[in-house]
Design a protein around this nucleic acid. Structure first.
Lengths: 254, 254
DNA sequence: CCTCCGATAATTACTCCGACATATTACAGG
DNA sequence: CCTGTAATATGTCGGAGTAATTATCGGAGG
């Protein structure tokens, strides 16, 4: 039981808790391990090129069976974070191989202190994709899409972005736009980005009271889409993303 | 009520071969299983909501151990294709939960007859992202980026898109543009899309001889980026994607 | 008699264990 | 420098036991 083993590299990982500590209901053990290791990699605790200690050793450190550990590794492998080879061990892959747009990977990236440069990259991508999505939505939206958007907007007004319900309404609004485009690839992509961006919203809140009322921006986007004006929708969404970027930037800088 | 009889749905999967048939070196068993099941799901053989037969049964059908089968399932779970719960079994998730931009998922989607609508969606996304990427590349490229692009262009000219080397050069060209943007999120995204789009290139080849010389389009993009003209780069790339779409559409229609 | 709710039971995935097989690297010998 | 051999870590296997969720059944209340 006494693990007086001299392993030093992974000690800190296991030290946090038994690895089964953060295991809520519906959360499997291997999922918790993957979560922990994923965050450790994304946070830079393990860097590309580093090789993890062997299966048996690491599994024992985490106090889990080898099966559970292996299944967790398969998850990380599926997301491009690590690669395992016989005799060579399990190594962290270079960043370019990581599926940075995977929802879980994004969540892990934003679990700790997110890399500022990566946040900028994400906003840049959002600034490219979302206006185009709004343009398509203005061309293709139907009555039902408009109704969902209107309801979400009303909910945003009722609660604010300071509440969970308000942020949920914000997500609903953007999701409705995506659904209106009818483009599955666009939906999957922007849903991930949106989720990631919403993590930053909490940052904004934490820094200080919301510096701006986001409702008018959203209303302009809605009006343009409802009116079926692609150019106006694109412009309005472009402005919205730009303002969100500025807010986030100032919050992170402060 | 109880399905005491062996589920016949999965029979065909195992029937193709022992599931270990397509297992080259460097390709683990669970990877092969994930590959096979992933293609089965993406091809619609298993539809959202369907529930796979139990671990023991399915693993025995595939003639593999439960460990290997489970690890494969973890991979699919990590990519959002399925979800396993005790007592409920393993079910295929709705399409909206799939990580359609995951490189493996894309590969599976294009392994069989790709869904035409999805190809259109992908091209639409590409038409949004790639011109924007070209615009950024024109603003941020350095000497080295230009050199790589020029070399790739020369290689494309030497070999044609009919050869593997030529297609590799095409990928290099586009990758160089992405790298020049310096945006990691953009790189990951478009690398996936580009790979998927290249599968369609083989379709074009299969249908008939390449109907158009793609070099001039690429040259225009290169010149604009090298000259540092964002608008021209965006326009040229936009035209390139548009032409590629038309070629692919006509090839798939014929 | 019907509806709703709670305790119970059955089924399924989840976890653990120990052994063996395989692939890859590293080293020694030619 | 090349080749063959040995060491080692991952890969695969089969079984046993645990935990969790769903479905069923029974009783209380309408």
């Amino acid at each position: 039981m006494t693990r007086s083993a001299p392993v030093s590299d992974n000690e800190d990982i296991a030290a946090i808790d038994g690895a089964r500590g953060v295991r809520g209901p519906g959360r499997r053990l291997h999922g918790a391990i993957a979560h922990k290791l994923g965050m450790a990699i994304l946070s830079g605790q393990y860097q590309p090129g580093d090789t993890l200690s062997g299966e048996v050793a690491f599994a024992e450190e985490l106090d889990v069976s080898r099966s559970a550990y292996r299944e967790a590794i398969q998850v990380l492998t599926a997301k491009g974070l690590v690669e395992s080879r016989p005799k060579a061990g399990t190594r962290v892959l270079p960043r370019t191989r990581w599926n940075l747009l995977d929802p879980d990977v994004l969540a892990w990236a934003f679990a700790g202190e997110p890399d500022i440069q990566f946040v900028r990259d994400l906003f840049e991508l959002r600034a490219i994709v979302e206006p185009a999505a709004a343009r398509l939505a203005a061309q293709r939206r139907n009555k039902d899409d408009i109704k969902v958007m209107k309801d979400a907007l009303a909910a945003m007004r009722r609660h604010t972005l300071a509440t969970d319900a308000g942020r949920a309404a914000d997500r609903d609004f953007h999701n409705a736009i995506l659904k209106a485009t009818g483009n599955d690839a666009l939906i999957v992509l922007t849903a991930s980005i949106g989720a990631a961006v919403n993590w930053t919203t909490q940052y904004k809140q934490r820094a200080r009271a919301l510096p701006r009322n986001p409702i008018p921006d959203h209303v302009r986007v809605f009006d343009a889409i409802a009116a079926g004006d692609p150019q106006a929708a694109s412009d309005a969404m472009s402005a919205l993303v730009q303002l969100a970027l500025e807010d986030t930037a100032s919050a992170m800088a402060g």
